[in-house]
């Protein structure tokens, strides 16, 4: 994976805001689905969540005060959608989604054991990690998405990696 955060579409450029959002969709779709899959453990539900996110964004775009924050705004919508989906599943199944059981072995998506490991991370650490890795977002955008400072993002990422390393070490011992 490319370690350098990808640049999004030029959302500050003049033009139809819907086209800008379309460019964001095309450019970020795969990453958003990957992020949502990590959150939901289900690629199909993840794609639905991403599409629902852009439907919502298109519908509410007129209310967006700062066009420069379009990407962060869209990611925050996606986080809300995945959160609602997890909540919906919990209501209907009575338990959180079982990340270790959701994907078939042939899927390019899943390593069940690693899912269980990552699930042990605190929620915020996991979210920041997912946004950074799957979303390929720079710390500044992650901070904007989550409404926290850039420094907090960096510290959270650091703690997340430390925690993950510790868990993996415990696992191998």
């Amino acid at each position: 994976m490319d370690e350098t955060p990808a640049r999004g579409p030029d959302i500050a450029a003049p033009g139809d805001p819907h086209d800008v959002l379309g460019a964001l969709y095309r450019d970020r779709y795969a990453r958003m689905v990957r992020f949502a899959t990590a959150r939901l453990g289900d690629a199909e539900a993840a794609e639905d969540a991403v599409n629902d996110t852009f439907v919502t964004a298109l519908r509410r775009m007129d209310g967006l005060r700062d066009p420069g924050s379009l990407e962060a705004w869209t990611w925050s919508i996606l986080i809300n959608h995945t959160r609602m989906e997890r909540r919906r599943r919990r209501w209907f199944s009575g338990s959180p989604p079982d990340l270790s059981q959701v994907e078939a072995p042939a899927s390019p998506i899943v390593d069940r054991e690693l899912r269980e490991v990552v699930r042990r991370l605190p929620t915020r650490q996991r979210t920041v990690l997912f946004l950074r890795f799957y979303g390929d977002l720079p710390n500044t955008t992650i901070a904007e998405v989550l409404g926290i400072s850039t420094g907090t993002v960096g510290a959270t990422l650091h703690r997340a990696q430390e925690t993950l390393r510790r868990i993996l070490k415990e696992r191998t011992e």
Binding site: V33, A43, V118, L157, A160, Q161
Partner: peptide, 20 residues
């Protein structure tokens, strides 16, 4: 991200050419 985290997350949800 450090290589261990990157490897771990990449194995958890592998990159895939999803197209919307």
């Amino acid at each position: 991200l450090d290589p261990l985290t990157t490897r771990t997350l990449d194995r958890m949800v592998r990159d895939h050419p999803w197209t919307g």
